[in-house]
Design a protein around this nucleic acid. Sequence first.
DNA 1: GATGAATGAGGTTTCATTCAT
DNA 2: GATGAATGAAACCTCATTCAT
Lengths: 219, 219, 219, 219
Amino acid sequence: MTEKRYKDAFERASDERKNLILETATKEFASKGYEKANINVIAKNAGISIGLMYKYFSTKEDLFITCVQHGMNILDNALEEIMMSDDKLLIKAEKLIRTTCIHSKKNANYIRLYNEITSERNPMLVKTIANEIESSISKKYVYSISSALKTGDVRQDLDPRLFAFFLDDILLALRFSYTCDYYKERFEIYTGVNVEEMDEEAIVSQLLKFIESAFTFEK
Amino acid sequence: MTEKRYKDAFERASDERKNLILETATKEFASKGYEKANINVIAKNAGISIGLMYKYFSTKEDLFITCVQHGMNILDNALEEIMMSDDKLLIKAEKLIRTTCIHSKKNANYIRLYNEITSERNPMLVKTIANEIESSISKKYVYSISSALKTGDVRQDLDPRLFAFFLDDILLALRFSYTCDYYKERFEIYTGVNVEEMDEEAIVSQLLKFIESAFTFEK
Amino acid sequence: MTEKRYKDAFERASDERKNLILETATKEFASKGYEKANINVIAKNAGISIGLMYKYFSTKEDLFITCVQHGMNILDNALEEIMMSDDKLLIKAEKLIRTTCIHSKKNANYIRLYNEITSERNPMLVKTIANEIESSISKKYVYSISSALKTGDVRQDLDPRLFAFFLDDILLALRFSYTCDYYKERFEIYTGVNVEEMDEEAIVSQLLKFIESAFTFEK
Amino acid sequence: MTEKRYKDAFERASDERKNLILETATKEFASKGYEKANINVIAKNAGISIGLMYKYFSTKEDLFITCVQHGMNILDNALEEIMMSDDKLLIKAEKLIRTTCIHSKKNANYIRLYNEITSERNPMLVKTIANEIESSISKKYVYSISSALKTGDVRQDLDPRLFAFFLDDILLALRFSYTCDYYKERFEIYTGVNVEEMDEEAIVSQLLKFIESAFTFEK
DNA sequence: GATGAATGAGGTTTCATTCAT
DNA sequence: GATGAATGAAACCTCATTCAT
C-alpha cells in the first residue's frame, strides 16, 4: 500500500546495512531538519559511499520518505495490537496514552521526522505521505469509536470521525511534546513542568479524565 | 516583552512599507518554508533593495522571527477580548472555537509560519520564540479555567494547566488543519470532508460537546 | 609637497573634528586593515554622517591616505630635531633608536597603517605614498652619513645610501616589532622575550653596538 | 610540525595538480592581496571547479595559509644547506645574502604572501603562522652566531639573539625590496637605483661590510 | 556491487557610494 | 553645511547529484 521510494538494490542489501542506513539518516534528518541534512554526511556516517547511497535511493527526498515510512510502520505496529483488541474504548484509550508516551520516548527521532513532514510544501508529496501515515491509524480510531457507539458505551450524539480527530489531536501534541524542542517548551509553559521530569501518571490520569468525560457524558 | 529582532531603521520606515515587507516575507516563508525562502526575492517583491532589507533586519532569521511575532500579536489580540470577558467558560470556549476558525482562514500564512517554527532546531531560539508565542495564550487559558474552578462551573478534580494544554492541543490542530497542506489532508482523512468545504457549525458543535463534557462531567 | 587627498570642506572643519575623524579612522584602519575597515562605521564612531564623510573625502582610499600622511608628519617631526642637530652620527643614532621606541609605542596605530600601506598593490598609489613617506627620512639619513664621511667619523669605504638603507631596515623592523602582531611574535621568537616586557636599554645598547661597529670599523 | 590546513583530499590529488593549484593561488594572492583575491577565479585558473576547491581547502584562509607554508618550505630548504655547513660566520653571511637575492627574485610571489601575512589581524592565526615561518630560520641564525661566539670568531659582547634579529631585519627588507612595490620604491628612494637594475655585487659587498664590522669589531 | 572525485548553480551577506532633502 | 536612506554588485561557501572506474 505504501509506495516504495527505495530502489531494488536497497532491498538486496543486508538487513544490518538497511537498518544502519535508515537509522543514520533518521538521526541526521531529525537533528538538522530535511533541508539542512546532508546526504553525503549520512552516507559517510552509515559507512557507505555516496555513490552507493544513490544506488539505493534516487534522491534525498526518497531517502527521507523511506525513513518516515519506516518510522510509521513502527508506530503502526505498536498501535495495532491495542486497537484491534476487544477492550472497551476507555481501556483502549488508557493503553493508547501509555503507549504513546513510551513509544515517543523510545522513537523520538521518528516523531521528529513526522513533525518535519508536517511543514512540507510539495502538495502531491504531502498528500501521499499523509495518507500513508494517517489512514491506518484513523481507521483504527474510527472503527473503535463506532463499535463503542453501537454497544452504547459512549454518548450517542457524537460524530465518531470528528471525535477521533480531536482525540488524535491531543495524542499528536503529546508525541511532539516528548520529542520536539518547540513542543517541549510549550508543554512546560502550559504545565509548569518539564516533560521529562513530569510524572507520567499525572498525564495519563488527567488525559483519561478528559477523554472519558468527553466521550461518555450526555445531558 | 517580546525581544525585537528588527533594527531601528525598520521602525523609522513608513507603516505602509513595514506592513508590505512583513506581508511579503510572511507569504514567501509560508509558501516555501524558512530554508527555501529567498531574501532577495522578498526584497524584490516588497519593492526595496536587498541592501535596505539588511538595514532593516540583520539576518534572514531576524526577518523570519519578526514575521512570526507579528502574526502572534494578531492572534493574541483576537483572543484577548474573548478571554478577558466575564463570560462563563463554555461561552468563552464557543467564541474561542469560532474565532480560531475565522482567524485561521484569514491569517493562514501566519499559522503556517507557526508550524514552521515548530520544527526549528536551534534550542535557544526555540525557547525564546515558544515563550513569546505560548506564554500569553496559556496564561489566558489557565486563568479562565481556574476562575471556573472557583465558581464551581467545572469539575473540581481537573488540573487546570493540563486541561488547558489538552484544549489548546485541539485548537492548535484545528488551526493547522485550516492552513497547512499536511494537516488539511489529515483532517480529510479523519472526517472524510475537506476542511474548506466542511460546515463550520459541525466542527463547532462537536468540539463544544467534546469540551463541555470533558470539563463539566464528574462521576 | 605631499598631495592632499581631502576636500576643501575638510579644511574648513574645526580642528577638533578633523582630529577626531583622523583618529577614529586610523583606529579602524589599524585594527581591521584597509579592506575590512568600514567607512560607515568610521563616520558613526566619529559622530558625523556618512554623507558628510563624503563631503570631506572623495573615497575610502583618500581617507586612508590622509590618515597615513598625518601619521607620517608626526613621525617626521619627531625625527626632524634629531637629524638636523650638530651631533655626531653615533649620538644621533642613539637618539634615533630611543625615539623610534618611544614614538612607536605612542603612535602604534600610525605604524600599523604604515605596514598596511606596504602591501598595497596599486603601483601608482604606492609610488606616491612611498615618496611622501620615505623621501624626507631617507634624505636626513643620507645627509647625516655623508657629513660623517666628510669629517672622517665613519669608515671611508661605505656607500652612504646603502648604509642608510640598512640602518633604516633595522629601525623599521623595530617599529613594527612594537606595533604589529606578526612582528611582535617574530621579535619574541628571535629574542625569547616579549617586546613589551623587554628592557629597552638592552635593545638600545645592542643595536648601538651593532651600528657603531658597522659604521666605524675598517680593516 | 607545521599544522596542515588542507584536507585529505588535497593530499590525494596528483602532484601536478597540487602544484598548479598552489601556484595559481599564490599568484592571485600575491597580485591582489588576501581580501581581494577571488577563490572562484583561482579555481577557474587552476582548471578545477569551485566545489572541488572546497573539497581541498575548507576556507579561503586555509588555502592562503597553505600557500604561505609552501613558500616558507622553499625558503627554508634554500637556507638549510647554507646554515648547516661548517663555514665560518662571514662565509655563511655572504652565501646568505646572495641566496636571499636570488631566491627573492625567483620566488617573488611567495615573498609577497609573506608581506601580506605580516599585516594580518587575527592574533591566534598570526601567532601560529609566525612560529611556523620564523622559528626555523631564527634557530639557524642563533645557532650559527652562538657557534661563532664560542670559537671567538665574533666579538664577545654581542647578544646572539638580538644580533640575529638585526641581521634578519636587513635580509627581510632586502627580500621585500626585490618583490613588493612599496619596498621597491623605498629601495630606489634610498639608493637612487631601481633594485632590478642595481648591480647585485654592490649590495652584497656593502652589506657584507656592514655585517662583518658589526659582528667582529670590538673596542 | 562499490567508490569518491568532480560539478556548478544558487543564496546570504557586506559595504562603498549616491542623492534627495 | 549636514543627513541617512537607498542601492546593488560581488564573493564565499554548500551540497545534491553524476559518472568513470
